[in-house]
């Protein structure tokens, strides 16, 4: 009887041992699988960057630094300079951010603090739906609805009041700013920037809304109890509490604005002419690639377009690096303070 029970115990111990070994093995495999997933992303990133660099090396080695500083993009003469698309990309993204961030902030605050309870759900869902609309729809809307508004109302006003507009007698009516001079064609860098801002609004505002909701209500209530106004609560309590996530949301939107192709192609005017004016047509990196890749028959032209893709990689990387740096500096300041 006793020997039997002893054997029983032995079996149980062995079973436990085998189980824990198995668990440990599974754990190891799990860790490896997760590592593989992470490495896959890294490999895809490095691979894509490497491939665009390799594909573009012919253009980069032919033109050197000139590729980044020249405004000439002449396919027939085989001269390629990327300055106009680079500026177009940065300018449209900047305009988009300048418009989208304050508006998103307003939307998020409205939805978390101001709006009546019954309104929060539907409006929040509507904004998230905006994020799901394909960019081609924004492009068509921009082209057919927004461009006429720009050419008939917005651009004439800008040109007449800020740019080089003249009255019937030929006397200048505006401030003569080069940034707003030109003809009211409707399309242009400013138009593209505004359409982009609408596209990235839902990304930024839904992130802001989510994180504003995470602010503990006792923090806010304490501030209110101390006599803070609504604005003071937002600026001094909510925003510092959620800063990291808010900046993350802004850069998510910026990333989308930098790489957006279809909508920009529709409304930017696709011109490689160098212009200092926001109302004049320009082009962006992604729009140039989308327009020209199909019919790029010379090797140098194709290489120049792939080099442009590499530039977009680098630009996006720099922007994200700046974001990380900003966050780190903020964190450090907070620690010191």
């Amino acid at each position: 009887m006793s020997s039997l029970s002893a054997t029983d115990g032995l079996i149980v111990t062995r079973a436990v041992d085998a189980g824990s070994y198995r668990d440990a093995r599974h754990d190891r495999w799990f860790r490896r699988a997760m590592l593989l997933c992470a490495l896959l992303v890294l490999a895809a990133l490095i691979g894509a960057a490497g491939a665009t660099l390799w594909g573009g090396h012919q253009a980069l080695s032919t033109f050197g630094w000139h590729f980044f500083t020249s405004t000439t993009w002449d396919v027939n003469a085989g001269q390629f300079g990327a300055l106009v698309p680079i500026i177009g990309t940065l300018a449209t993204a900047l305009i988009a951010i300048v418009i989208a961030v304050p508006v998103s902030f307003g939307i998020a605050i409205f939805l978390t603090d101001v709006a009546p309870q019954w309104m929060r759900g539907p409006v929040g869902t509507a904004i998230e739906l905006l994020a799901g609309i394909p960019s081609i729809i924004y492009g068509m809307w921009g082209f057919f609805v927004f461009v006429p508004i720009m050419s008939e109302t917005v651009q004439p006003w800008l040109i007449n009041h800020l740019g080089d507009g003249t009255n019937d007698a030929g006397n200048p009516t505006g401030l003569g700013l080069a940034l707003f001079s030109g003809a009211p064609i409707g399309v242009g860098v400013l138009t593209a920037g505004i359409v982009l801002s609408i596209m990235i609004l839902p990304f930024i505002s839904s992130v802001m809304r989510e994180v504003f909701l995470t602010v503990p209500s006792r923090l806010k209530e304490s501030a209110y109890a101390l006599g803070s106004t609504r604005w003071e609560v937002l600026w001094d309590i909510v925003l510092p509490y959620t800063r990291t996530a808010v900046i993350g949301g802004i850069f998510l939107g910026l990333g989308r604005a930098l790489g957006e192709t279809m909508a920009v192609t529709f409304v930017i005017g696709n011109s490689h002419d160098f212009s200092t004016s926001l109302v004049m047509p320009g082009t962006s990196i992604a729009a140039t690639i989308a327009n020209e890749f199909n019919e790029a028959s010379s090797d140098l032209h194709r290489s120049a377009l792939i080099a442009l893709a590499f530039v977009l990689f680098v630009v996006t990387f720099i922007v994200l690096a700046i974001a990380k740096l900003m966050l780190r500096r903020l964190a450090r300041r907070e620690g010191n303070g």
Partner: peptide, 27 residues
């Protein structure tokens, strides 16, 4: 010169025949 695309000295670019005709109808 001439080619499938040239360094257009002026103007705006529409994508495809439909892009050009839409621009012309609109502006």
């Amino acid at each position: 010169g001439f080619g499938t695309t040239v360094a257009w000295p002026t103007g705006i670019g529409g994508k495809g025949n439909e892009g050009v005709s839409a621009f012309v109808r609109q502006a």
